[in-house]
Nucleic acid binder design. Structure first.
Lengths: 145, 145
DNA sequence: CTAATCCTTCCCACCATGGGAAGGTCAAGA
DNA sequence: TCTTGACCTTCCCATGGTGGGAAGGATTAG
């Protein structure tokens, strides 16, 4: 099976399959005499696994660990669970940050007349010299801790 | 005031200030004879505005619109409000996606013994051939709609 | 045989941010 | 005055996942 078929069957784009191979997430696919990558249904199985993990928001690094455990017949489910729960904690942290932003902004928007006059508490808040007093920390964006 | 001072005073890194200038989010700063960028307290005011909008999760594009309204004395607060609420809706959509992921994974993790045995429903779910039945759509990741 | 469709590799772009190198400038202290 | 250290400048590179597209070869259906 060629990469296009594997892509359709797994839900992972051909481009991403090549990328995953290049970065070592998956082992290099076999090749035909003319250089086409060849995939087995086993491979598709693995790609589908990856797709689902992505859908659950795992990073490629996380998926790499997950794949390791998946392949390891003598794994301990405790390790899998730990990985999963750590990711859940990550997600919840991000959710909390976004929720903080959303509610701050919503409060501000609620206080805004939303008419044809220029005065607007949203802009006032943004241009205020000092930190926002009411909300504890709408700050501390994603990425870096 | 040099870029370092403006950075400290505004909370926007020097690197980002240059980037914002380069991409046109902010107008080019004045320069000393020797080429150093010079900032006024007005500029710092603007940078702080940007910083806060970032803290509320606005993209640079969104901030650009916000800045336009901020500078426009004849703006209508309705426009600001619309922008803010659209962003809130964006945030809530992302939150819902993350929450979907988190709860799916949490349910799975809950069903996992987390002991020294290898069997684990988390991996089972990931390797399942068909789509997840219980959850409607843990899929459809961020970014592109 | 030809045309369409696939595959290959390679480079570029996104977004926002940081790292760092090579070199110029400025201010303070000896 | 000279040196030193802290600052500034521009330029390139990396991140993480993903897509776009070009140039050229392979395969396949008609």
């Amino acid at each position: 099976m060629n990469i296009g078929d594997a892509a359709k069957a797994s839900g992972v784009s051909a481009k991403m399959i090549r990328y995953y191979e290049e970065t070592g997430l998956i082992p290099p696919a076999g090749r035909t005499a003319s250089g086409y990558r060849v995939y087995s249904s086993q491979d598709v199985h693995m790609l589908r696994f990856i797709r689902r993990a992505r859908d659950l928001g795992f990073s490629v690094d996380g998926i790499s660990e997950l794949l390791g455990l998946w392949r390891d017949q003598s794994r301990q489910s405790a390790d899998v669970k730990r990985l999963a729960l750590a990711h859940v904690a990550d997600l919840r942290r991000k959710i909390a940050e976004l929720e903080d932003m959303a509610s701050t902004l919503e409060t501000l928007a609620h206080a805004c007349h939303g008419n044809d006059r220029p005065d607007c508490p949203i802009l006032s808040e943004l241009e205020a010299t000092n930190r926002a007093p009411e909300r504890r920390n709408a700050a501390s964006r994603f990425g870096k801790a």
